[in-house]
Nucleic acid binder design. Structure first.
Length: 199
DNA sequence: TAGGCCATCTGGTCCT
DNA sequence: AGGACCAGATGGCCTA
């Protein structure tokens, strides 16, 4: 599923679509993401190229938050289903004044580590979003998955490299690809989710 | 309903 | 010692 085939013969507009921007279907994540991105940026852990502006929401969350009794009892176990991030954010807000239970140092450390990990993943995700904005897609395509984003980026870079090496006008090069059937030197395929075939 | 994708938690390892 | 990074496990959501 989710096959993205950059068929240069698709229609007469394909060559321009290649250079255009981009994913129109991108739903700018959830309120939570925005919320936590705010927090992340406030703590200076956002990826350096991110352009998200933000305010600190609970910058000291690592130090203040948690009702340890509400923590999940084990890996992946969340009471009442996965506690939605929004719910957790609310909990954090509600509980921010609480102090950490001194007799549960492991849980405190573990929870702090969880928060750091979440922030780290958010910074990775923001980098993926940034990358998605630089990988050409057709407007009607749905949002690229992470793996598709990486694969398309690889293929796109390969194409750009070939254009540079060729010294041709980019549009002429693409036109030539369309006529002859595109196959680049690295055998990268403009096809996602099916996997890039190795050279 | 199965499979894909994703977020989150967790424990281990490495680095500073 | 504490933080960053990583991979495995788990569960939720979405789509064909």
């Amino acid at each position: 599923m989710e096959d993205l085939l950059f068929d240069f013969d698709q229609d007469g507009t394909a060559d321009f679509a290649l250079w255009g921007q981009m994913d129109q279907n991108f739903p700018f994540q959830s309120q939570l993401d925005t919320f936590l991105l705010d927090c992340t940026a406030a703590t200076g852990q956002l990826s350096p190229w991110s352009s998200f502006g933000c305010q600190s929401v609970f910058p000291d969350a690592q130090l203040t938050f948690t009702d340890l009794d509400l923590q999940s009892p084990g890996p992946g176990v969340c009471p009442g289903g996965e506690s939605s991030p929004t719910e957790e954010s609310l909990d954090v807000t509600k509980l921010s004044a609480r102090t950490l239970a001194p007799h549960q140092p492991y849980k405190v450390q573990r929870h702090a580590a969880n928060i750091r990990e979440r922030k780290r993943m958010l910074s990775i995700n923001s980098a993926f979003e940034e990358l998605r904005c630089h990988v050409p897609t057709f407007p009607y395509e749905k949002r690229l998955s992470k793996i598709d984003t990486l694969r398309l980026a690889i293929a796109y870079i390969a194409l750009l490299r070939e254009i540079l090496m060729s010294g041709c006008d980019p549009k002429s090069y693409v036109d030539e690809c369309m006529k002859s059937g595109y196959k680049n030197q690295t055998n990268a395929i403009w096809n996602t989710s099916g996997g890039l075939s190795a050279p």
